[in-house]
Design a protein around this nucleic acid. Structure first.
Length: 477
RNA sequence: GGCGGCAUAGCCAAGUGGUAAGGCAGAGGUCUGCAAAACCUCUAUUCCUCAGUUCAAAUCUGAGUGCCGCCUCCA
């Protein structure tokens, strides 16, 4: 099966053809580290992590680079508010990033380069652009001359004329052309600054991605990703400066952009103030639920954020987890059953699910459609366990498939987050005792006591369920 | 003003020419001391509106309505 993906550059789905046959080089624009990242940022990270995992599943060796913008205007501003050195603040939120990333089950990037550690590389590129006439210096600032780059606007589908007509920006008189953007910014007193041929200053926003992607992936790498709002101006400017610097070589082969997370149908953004940080959400929802919810809609469609949707996601995810658990209980039970017909049914269900899953994911990473394959498989497994409460090779294979496909989406169906316990052995022993006591009550038909025990445990967040094979328990908040 | 996107059941959401996936919620049933979970059955003659193309349209075309995004830092 061949993989198709939507390329923003051509505005259509294309056959994916990497630079090297079994390797994929991808660059995803990482966070500016002046705060915890919000749910909208989270969507982007989860989406590209899912894309990466699927590419790995397809057998590609993926080199994944995600930067940290750890110096910029907002970091400086926020540093003043928090009373921290801007660079220390940037470092702090880099550390916080990894905590939330872990909760969302994001794989660490192959390389997580920081802007502040690549200043010399950026200066070299800026110098190169000045030498070829694409960059010019004015009083310690350096700008990129967009009208000297003929392809300017090719990613976002606009022309310089369009932009001039709709310009809502105050024009800096020192720029040669209104749309020219900063490659290097002169430092004001007290700001973090680095030595350069143009005096003390710091890099413009776009240049870091050029420097770091070229350094770690080389020209013409495969996938460059980010949120929809980065297409213009960020990625457009990256293309201009990079392809200008490379004298026309292609910067990246495929451009992918995810749609926004919205609140009340409006974009979630830091400047509108209508955002939730992932850190805040984790108080009420496990990271896996947030992740499951984020992948329940195709990545190029807007996704509205609210509690109701998260609760629905939680229920859906629990259904898959329950199915894996029921299968696990049957597998662990003594006595294996080998009914040929149901064997065949399960094996077929597993291979059907895999096929449907791959078909969905091959079509521009349609994770929402892929979910359907997981639910279908879960249903068949549940039906089997219902009829035959014993293990079988078919069930083992089906469960294995469900877990594996879940893992491709970054979901650990075998180990739900809500049943992680600190002292598992102790917990198990205590619960064994509780269930023994309750079992005694039930044998005596002392339903009042049996129900009382169940109610008390439920209050403590432990759910007790009776089955023909005895009672079981699980943690459920 | 320029450019782009979206509109599918109570809710979420797939589906881009062949007769509406999946999830949540709801109804009935099986199982059960009860509960929970699970299983079975049911729940959109219809895809914002109108017109057109076609043997055939949620899917293509045109017009309209509504919502959203980018054009300024934003994932």
């Amino acid at each position: 099966m061949s993989l198709k993906l939507y390329n923003t550059m051509t505005r259509q789905k294309e056959q994916f053809q990497p630079r090297e046959s079994k390797k994929v080089a991808m660059y995803v624009c990482g966070p500016t580290t002046y705060n915890y990242f919000h749910a909208g940022n989270g969507r982007m990270f989860v989406v590209f992590d899912m894309i990466r995992r699927y590419l790995m599943y397809k057998g590609y060796e993926v080199r994944y680079v995600q930067n940290f913008t750890d110096v910029d205007d907002k970091i400086i501003q926020r540093g003043n508010v928090e009373g921290m050195e801007p660079l220390a603040l940037g470092q702090k939120y880099i550390e916080e990033y990894f905590k939330d990333a872990l909760a969302l089950n994001l794989l660490p990037a192959t390389v997580h380069p920081k802007a502040t550690e690549h200043i010399p590389e950026m200066i070299e590129i800026i110098q190169g652009l000045i030498n070829t006439g694409l960059g010019y210096e004015v009083e310690g600032d350096v700008y990129f001359a967009v009208d000297h780059f003929p392809d300017y606007g090719k990613l976002s589908g606009r022309t310089l004329e369009d932009m001039k007509a709709g310009a809502r920006v105050e024009v800096d008189e020192r720029k040669h052309y209104p749309m020219d953007f900063a490659l290097w910014k002169k430092a004001k007193p007290g700001e973090p600054a680095w030595e350069s041929p143009w005096g003390l200053g710091r890099p413009g926003w776009h240049i870091e991605c050029t420097a770091m992607s070229l350094k770690y992936l080389g020209a013409g790498f495969d996938i460059h990703g980010g949120g929809e709002d980065l297409a213009f101006p960020h990625h457009e400017n990256e293309i201009a400066q990079t392809e200008g610097y490379l004298k026309g070589q292609t910067f990246a082969r495929y451009w992918m952009h995810n749609a926004f997370l919205t609140i009340n149908q409006e974009k979630m953004s830091k400047s509108l103030g209508n955002f939730f940080t992932v850190r805040e959400l984790l108080v009420n929802y496990p990271g896996e639920v947030i992740r499951f919810y984020l992948l329940g809609t195709h990545y190029r469609s807007p996704l509205d954020f609210n509690d109701q949707n998260l609760v629905m996601a939680q229920k859906g995810l629990e259904r898959l987890q329950t199915s894996v658990r029921l299968a696990q209980e049957a597998i662990e039970r003594v006595g294996s059953l080998n009914n040929e017909q149901s064997q065949a049914e399960l094996l077929k269900a597993a291979s059907d699910a895999r096929e449907a899953f791959e078909k969905a994911m091959d079509d521009d990473f349609n994770s929402a459609l892929a979910y359907a394959a997981l639910f279908e498989l879960a249903k068949t497994m549940n039906g089997y366990v219902q009829e035959h409460p014993a293990s079988s090779e078919g069930l083992v294979q089906a469960q294995k498939t469900l877990i594996e496909l879940g893992e491709v989406l970054g979901l650990d169906l075998l180990h739900p987050a809500n049943i992680q316990v600190e002292n598992e052995e102790m917990m198990t022993q205590i619960m064994d005792a509780v269930l023994q006591i309750r079992s005694r009550s039930r044998q005596k038909k002392d339903w009042e006591m049996a129900d009382f025990i169940r109610d008390v445990m439920k209050e403590k967040g432990i759910l007790i369920e009776d089955t023909p094979q005895g009672a079981r328990w699980q943690i459920k908040k």
